[in-house]
Amino acid sequence: MLQLEGIYKSYYRQKVLEDVSFDVPSGQIIGLLGPNGAGKTTLIRIINQIIEPDKGYLSLNGKRMTSEHLKNIGYLPEERGLYKTMTVENHALFLGQLRGLPKNDVQKQLDYWLEKFEIQGWRKKRIEELSKGMAQKVQFICTVLHDPDLLILDEPFSGFDPINVDLIRAELNAFRVAGKTIILSTHNMKSVEEICDRAVLIDKGKKIMEGAIHDIRSENKEGVFSITFTGNMIAFATALWAGYEIISKEVHNDTTFTVYLKMRGENEFNDLLTTLLPAVKIISAQEVLPSMEDVFMKKINAGKEVEHA
């Protein structure tokens, strides 16, 4: 769907993006991750053609991107605003038409989304009459009004209550099912795990990691297993001897526990189960993959260490 090839961007001799390349396949949700100041917003602005790269190019569906492609893109920036004195309807008409949609089509799309979000009564309200969350919803509607193939959302969940977060999340999934592509820039790693198919991690203007979410977590696993069992904790600990290292435990009640451990030496998962089965009753046992937050922290900190070294 979207290819970025060797993107460079500097501001006043300060490199903001350096040789960033990645592909965004169709029908997937891509998490664009990185700490503050990593260059995510600059990259998003380049994709939206708000600014031009110093070097490199972008292509959409195999064709070099031009301003013509803008009508296929929907963009919800992190710092988003609306004209406070305009009504919801006029705002939607203005932004929809700017994206190249005829007036009648904007009206139809607006009807559809207002009905879908059950907010038909807002149509004639001025933006300044809406709460922050309500305005966020209007912004989301204005972003998707022209039915874009590529959606770029910068922190789309900020400002929403949990109910509306679920609502927006459901809509994003529906877009994915409909074959749309979504680039999601967020610091909320839980969201990334839950809804993203892939992720690209950027730090200090460079791409430092890219891949499917499961692959990223698997590649960064550290051999930690979790065992949930009923029985005696002492019997459990005694059964494990020098070949295992208990990292932490959770006590559910007097007889039920979850223990996180690492294996030492040549031991494998089967050996662990063989050792424990005679001592306790195992409820569940699995390898623990690191959270995206753990991976994120690990990669960013690794970068800092290299820098200090």
Binding site: I50, I73, Y83, K84, R99
Partner: peptide, 16 residues
């Protein structure tokens, strides 16, 4: 005003 309330970024995604 457009700059401070950031509506300009939404607009710039559609127009030069």
């Amino acid at each position: 005003h457009e700059k401070s309330n950031r509506v300009v970024e939404v607009l710039l995604a559609s127009v030069h």
